[in-house]
C-alpha cells in the first residue's frame, strides 16, 4: 500500500487509541455518576475507531489490528502528544476533549474527500459518533464557562494547557506531501490547522474565554520540516542551532513524552508478555 496512506491511517488510529485510553481511565471515576456512564461511551467510541482504522491498515499491509495497537515499540506511535497527556482533572479532560473533537471534526470533514474508498466509508461512520462527541464537549464547555467562577477558572487553565499542544494534532504527518499529492489527505495539515484556529477562536470568543489562550498557539502556528525531518517552529531565530520543539509537537514523528512511555508500558504489557496468545 501507499506509504503515505499507511502514515495517515497510523496517525489517525494512534490518536484515537491513545486518547480513548486516557478517556477510559475516567470510567468508574468521573466526578458525576451519569457523566461517568456517558464519558465511558466516548472512550469506547474512540477505541472502536482506532480498531477500525488499524483493521483497515492491517488489511492492506498485513498483520492484525491488535498487533498494530499493542505490539509496536513506543517510538512507532504517531499520535499527537496532546492525546497522551495524563487526565489531570476533569477540567483538563474536558478542555482536551473539546480541543480534540473540534480538531477531529475539521479533519474528518476534509477526509470525506479522501482518495481511498474504504477510508472514506469509515470516515462517514466515524463522523456520526464524532458529531455527538462534539455536541457533548460543547455542552460541557458552555455550561462550565457560564457557571461559577471556580469552574470557569479551572476550565481556562485546562484550555490553556490543551491549546498549547493542540497544533500537534496538525503537525504534518510523515510523507505528508505525498499524502496530499495522492489525494489521501485532501487538504494539507497547515490548512487544517488554519481552519481549526479560526473555529476555535470564534468559539472561545463566543464563550467569553480570554483570548490569550489561543494567541499562544498562533505564535507556534507555522511549521517547516528541518533537514533532519524534525519539525521546528518557523520564525524562531535559534531554530537552526537549537532545534527546540514547540510544546506538544513531535508526536507525528514518534517523539513522545515520558508520560507516554509510562502509558505504553502498561497498555502493552499483557500483550507483549504473552507472544502468540489469543485473548
Amino acid at each position: 500500500m501507499s506509504e503515505a496512506l499507511a502514515s495517515l491511517l497510523t496517525a489517525l488510529a494512534d490518536d484515537e487509541l491513545i486518547l480513548g485510553h486516557r478517556h477510559s481511565e475516567w470510567t468508574g471515576f468521573a466526578p458525576h455518576i451519569e457523566e461517568d456512564v456517558a464519558f465511558s461511551s466516548i472512550a469506547q467510541d474512540e477505541i472502536g475507531h482506532a480498531a477500525a482504522l488499524y483493521s483497515l491498515l492491517a488489511q492492506r499491509s498485513g498483520g492484525d489490528a491488535d498487533g498494530l495497537a499493542l505490539g509496536r515499540d513506543a517510538a512507532a506511535y504517531r499520535h499527537a502528544v496532546l492525546c497522551e497527556r495524563p487526565n489531570r482533572d476533569w477540567a483538563y479532560t474536558l478542555a482536551r476533549h473539546w480541543v480534540y473533537d473540534t480538531a477531529d471534526a475539521i479533519r474528518l470533514e476534509a477526509l470525506h474527500d479522501t482518495a481511498d474508498e474504504d477510508l472514506r466509508a469509515l470516515v462517514t461512520k466515524m463522523s456520526r459518533e464524532e458529531r455527538y462527541h462534539l455536541i457533548h464537549a460543547d455542552a460541557w464547555i458552555e455550561r462550565v464557562a457560564a457557571g461559577p467562577v471556580e469552574g470557569r477558572m479551572k476550565l481556562e487553565d485546562g484550555l490553556k494547557e490543551a491549546f498549547e499542544e493542540a497544533l500537534g494534532l496538525f503537525e504534518p504527518i510523515e510523507h505528508e506531501e505525498k499524502a496530499v499529492h495522492e489525494g489521501y489527505l485532501p487538504l494539507p495539515s497547515s490548512e487544517l490547522a488554519r481552519r481549526f484556529r479560526e473555529l476555535a477562536a470564534n468559539k472561545l470568543d463566543e464563550l467569553g474565554v480570554q483570548t490569550e489562550i489561543y494567541s499562544r498557539s498562533d505564535e507556534a502556528a507555522e511549521f517547516v520540516a528541518s533537514s533532519s525531518g524534525d519539525l521546528i517552529a518557523s520564525g524562531d531565530e535559534h531554530a537552526e542551532s537549537q532545534p527546540e520543539r514547540a510544546r506538544g509537537l513531535g508526536g507525528r514523528s514518534g517523539h513522545h513524552s515520558d508520560e507516554f512511555q509510562d502509558l505504553w508500558d502498561v497498555m502493552t504489557s499483557t500483550y507483549r508478555n504473552n507472544p502468540g496468545a489469543t485473548w
Binding site: 469506547q44 467510541d45 472502536g48 475507531h49 477500525a52 461512520k125 466515524m126 456520526r128 459518533e129
Partner: peptide, 10 residues
C-alpha cells in the same frame, strides 16, 4: 434523534 443510533460496531 439520529444521535440515538449506534454508528459503529458495539
Amino acid at each position: 434523534e439520529s444521535l440515538l443510533e449506534i454508528a459503529a460496531d458495539k
